[in-house]
């Protein structure tokens, strides 16, 4: 108890640093001296905006309180939002995979539109970067989804007062303008773009989501040297991770599926292999169940694994139409 008290004093009232947990054989007086010195030098660098003792280091407490205020980008499907804890988290890298035609690109486009929902409506009022490696991004579809989104918002606005000024802001063309669209045609272009993103986002601070559709396509073409592919992919994933932390934005990577020969039968898995499956914070798998689309949280440090149905409509991603029916049946 005493030790804890003293470490509190070193680091200030609201922070706890567990000195007693370390294996270093350093007397406490020395340790406090070292800490003081380190925090002073980092302050001299002028880079100690973070309240932590070490530059960049944060206490779990501070991180938790920060995480509670993390904004979410809605998917426009309530069931999906529910299992995701509100939508796509900012500061996190999420991978979404599924068979062709399941709606990966549709979710991508929906998120690129939804990130722009004004703050007055509970959105982020941000901008989006859409990196298209496959050529499935269709402007006419974005327009459809954007128009439906604006319609929904103006319906919502009837219940609230500060509607008019938002309506002006949300014009379909504005939504198009707030999506930075990059079409990349090779894996070298893809890597170069990822390297450039840091600079781009620095200049466009309101970017709150990066969608990569898909991470996979170019990496399934050229590579005979699989070790090299893994290195390049993990480097890219790390850069996305850094971007998401540094600018507090959500990164969504879409992935394809492939068949894998396991125990004498072919099974469906996400592409890019086992090492890749460690790269993303969250992993969501989209699949068909009878004639309904489902999303399943395959991996997440904070969400419990759950699945929810959704549907792709002309207006975008929405709740599955039959989910209400099913409840009625019971």
């Amino acid at each position: 108890m005493e030790k804890k008290e003293s470490s509190r004093q070193i680091c200030g009232k609201d922070r706890i640093i567990a000195l007693e947990g370390t294996d270093l054989d350093v007397p406490e007086s020395k340790a406090s001296e070292i800490l003081k010195y380190v925090s002073q030098t980092s302050r001299m660098d002028g880079s100690s905006r973070s309240p932590a003792t070490f530059d960049g280091a944060q206490t779990a407490w501070a991180m938790l309180s920060e995480e509670n205020f993390l904004p979410c980008i809605t998917t426009s499907c309530l069931d999906l939002d529910n299992i995701l804890g509100g939508g796509m988290r900012c500061r996190e890298v999420t991978e979404i995979g599924g068979v062709p035609g399941i709606g990966k690109t549709q979710i991508g486009i929906q998120l690129a539109v939804n990130v722009q929902i004004p703050i007055e409506y509970g959105g982020l009022g941000g901008q989006a970067i859409y990196i298209d490696t496959e050529g499935s991004f269709m402007v006419e579809r974005v327009l459809q989804i954007a128009e439906a989104c604006i319609e929904d918002l103006s319906e919502y606005a009837h219940l609230h007062k500060d509607a008019q000024d938002c309506k002006v802001k949300m014009h379909p063309n504005n939504i198009l303008q707030n999506i930075f669209y990059f079409r990349v045609c090779s894996y070298t272009e893809q890597i170069a773009l990822v390297n450039y993103l840091d600079k781009f986002v620095t200049e466009h601070k309101s970017v709150k989501i990066i969608i990569l559709d898909s991470v996979t396509f170019h990496f399934r073409q050229e590579f005979d040297d699989m070790a090299r592919r893994t290195r390049l992919l993990s480097e890219m994933a790390l850069k996305f991770m850094r971007l998401s932390k540094k600018f507090g934005l959500a990164v969504v990577m879409l992935n394809q599926v492939t068949t894998k020969f396991i125990d004498g039968s072919f099974q469906l898995t996400l592409a890019l292999g086992d090492s890749w499956s460690h790269m993303c914070t969250n992993r969501i798998i989209l699949y068909w169940n009878n004639n309904e689309r489902y999303a399943f949280i395959d991996k997440s440090p904070s969400l419990k694994s759950a699945s929810a149905s959704y549907s792709v409509t002309s207006r975008g991603i929405r709740n599955s139409s039959s989910s209400s029916k099913r409840i009625k049946m019971m």
């Binding site: 970067i129 006419e140 198009l176 303008q177 990059f182």
Partner: peptide, 12 residues
């Protein structure tokens, strides 16, 4: 590398 403007990008 500059993003393409979606306003001009119409699919023929």
């Amino acid at each position: 590398m500059t993003p393409e403007s979606l306003l001009q990008l119409r699919t023929e």
